[in-house]
């Protein structure tokens, strides 16, 4: 088991390197010259060349990649071309804000989705099943920026009990667990949770339905287990597959929804990416994509290890 985990962790090193390379190259092949973005259009060519040398953009690509990698390894993602501030600091703040939002949305979505899907599986073919799956389809289909605006109209304008936008009522740009911040989390988290709820509900319903059709469930009934006893077996058997979908969803949520973060003006990775794209702020873009991709890799690793811990048949070596 421990050997398996160590080996699985080692596998992530080449994946992370490849992710880094893709991040680096994606930006290299994107059209547009970042130097033009920070200089006025009529700047002399000498100034542009000087600036290009200062940023190392005149070096061959492999050298640029190596330079970039060594800096990244030391936590230096460069400076924003737009603001001149270190990317790492801005990114850390945005990732922290998005993490709070993503985890809150994931918790809501995973719990609501599991309950809906579990109920649908337990009462297959009944009105409960049709109702739950209907809700799931609606959840997946509603555009969430639209839902976000509707929620703002309902709960901030018509019935003003929750703040409409921003992360705090005291003007700070980063998250804290206090009453100045927590009410701001509710609307965006609920909005973001709707799609994962629908996806998890359908996954749980499918996986649990398959398990309930398996022979061993008849054995469990034959042993006299009550519904709760059978439920425990179904949960454990469904967990590996459901966790895989949850991991993917958490990864997407970490990417931050550009639309939802824009609607609610939430200073997270989505908003950061959005700004960086429009400003051609390559260091910010690269750094953000890299960190998000590494989050994906880490979540996959965690899901793999959890699956192995639950299902002994996955264990090898």
């Amino acid at each position: 088991m421990i050997l398996y985990i160590l080996r699985r962790i080692l596998y992530t090193v080449p994946i992370a390197l490849a992710v880094g390379f893709v991040c680096f190259m994606l930006v290299q092949i994107a059209p547009g010259d970042p130097i033009n973005a920070i200089l006025p259009a009529d700047a002399p060519k000498e100034v542009a060349d000087m600036l290009r040398r200062a940023y190392g953009l005149d070096q061959p690509l492999p050298v640029q990649f190596w330079l970039w990698l060594t800096h990244v390894a030391q936590g230096d993602l460069g400076r924003s071309l737009a603001t001149g501030r270190p990317v790492t600091a801005d990114l850390a703040n945005a990732v922290g804000n998005t993490l709070v939002l993503a985890v809150a949305a994931a918790l809501i979505g995973f719990v609501a989705g599991s309950v809906l899907g579990g109920a649908a599986a337990a009462w297959r073919g009944t009105a409960v099943d049709r109702g739950a799956i209907g809700l799931a389809v609606v959840g997946v289909s509603i555009p969430h920026y639209w839902l976000g605006m509707v929620l703002v109209i309902l709960f901030s304008v018509l019935w003003p009990i929750l703040p409409a936008t921003g992360i705090s009522s005291d003007g700070s740009g980063s998250w804290a667990w206090d009453m100045a911040h927590i009410p701001h989390l509710i609307l965006p988290a609920v909005t973001l949770a709707v799609i994962p709820t629908g996806l998890i509900a359908r996954t749980v319903r499918g996986v649990a339905g398959d398990i309930l059709n398996q022979d061993f469930v008849t054995t469990l009934r034959g042993k006299g287990l009550r519904p709760f006893g059978i439920f425990r077996h179904v949960v454990k058997n469904a967990a590996p597959n459901v966790l895989a979908v949850m991991g993917l969803q958490l990864g997407y949520l970490m990417g931050g929804s550009i639309l939802v973060e824009t609607v609610f003006n939430w200073p997270g990775t989505g908003l950061l990416l959005n700004t960086a794209i429009f400003q051609r702020d390559i260091p910010v873009l690269q750094g953000t994509i890299l960190v998000l991709a590494l989050f994906f890799v880490a979540i996959n690793l965690a899901v793999d290890i959890l699956q192995t811990a639950i299902d002994p048949r996955v264990r090898r070596g």
Partner: peptide, 27 residues
């Protein structure tokens, strides 16, 4: 259903055809 569940596995129990699939694979 409750009374029947109390009898199953106690008074009366069953062996199935496929020992491969009749046992929970992860317990």
């Amino acid at each position: 259903a409750r009374a029947v569940a109390d009898l199953r596995g106690g008074l009366v129990s069953m062996i199935f055809q496929e020992p491969m699939t009749a046992l929970d694979p992860i317990f």
